[in-house]
Design a protein around this nucleic acid. Structure first.
Lengths: 120, 120
DNA sequence: ATTACTGTATCAGTACAATAATACAGTTGG
DNA sequence: CCAACTGTATTATTGTACTGATACAGTAAT
């Protein structure tokens, strides 16, 4: 995982997304311990405070949870990981198709561009 | 055009993108007068100041230009509109494909999702 | 010329994200 | 037990985006 964040954009959403990607990729499995707020803060060059806030947001979505003093862990609920993956894919795909259709692109044109970029 | 911006995200980039979309769609053609900062401000529920700043950013990219007292206009350079369109499509497509591949999706899987969302 | 529109500039105030520093509390392994 | 790690909380500060108000200057049409 590359914890190189875009400092020009809000950091918390980026940290949340990175975590979600790792879960969606199954790099982090249900129940796994994840990196501490201080570890991530060091790698991502941000404040522990910022990571804490990001983790709390994911906790609120039920994706991860904390045990005081012990660390943060991926939710044991097996469905969550699959949900995170599906929602990520569908959200990104939906946004992308919508953007292209607003520009007036036909289905065939969209597929043409998609195929072009897959082969690289 | 729906000037309903997402107030939770930076407004200037959103205003810039809306303008670019209108140019890419050919709703605004080279040389066309575009809405004044005050008009857009009113419709988008933002400050004229914010629109001004957005316009200045697009001006720096050569997409639009101003004539003091007269208004803002789309660049007369015919290439610009085509560039805006192509760059928009390629940027979005590239980002999307990259996001999907990071998740480990194959080309076939990506195309499957794309086709699914086109039919809606 | 007057009027009503344009762009442009400035400044103070607000809201929020993130920093930086510090402290406290719970867990774990040697 | 103890040391080294965890999460959690607090406070003050910074940087930035945006607001709101106001003012000035150029354009264009009647």
């Amino acid at each position: 995982m590359d914890w190189e964040l875009d400092k020009k954009r809000p950091l918390c959403p980026q940290i949340c997304e990175q975590l979600c990607i790792m879960i969606a990729r199954d790099d982090l499995k249900p129940g796994d311990k994840i990196m501490s707020v201080r570890e991530v803060a060091l790698m991502a060059q941000v404040t522990p405070n910022t990571v804490q806030k990001s983790y709390e947001q994911l906790e609120q979505q039920g994706v991860i949870y904390s045990r005081r003093g012990a660390g943060w862990f991926v939710s044991e609920n097996q469905e969550i990981a699959q949900d995170v993956r599906e929602q990520y894919i569908r959200s990104k795909t939906g946004d992308y198709i919508k953007d292209m259709q607003i520009l007036g692109l036909s289905g065939d044109e969209i597929e043409k561009y998609v195929k072009e970029f897959i082969n690289e």
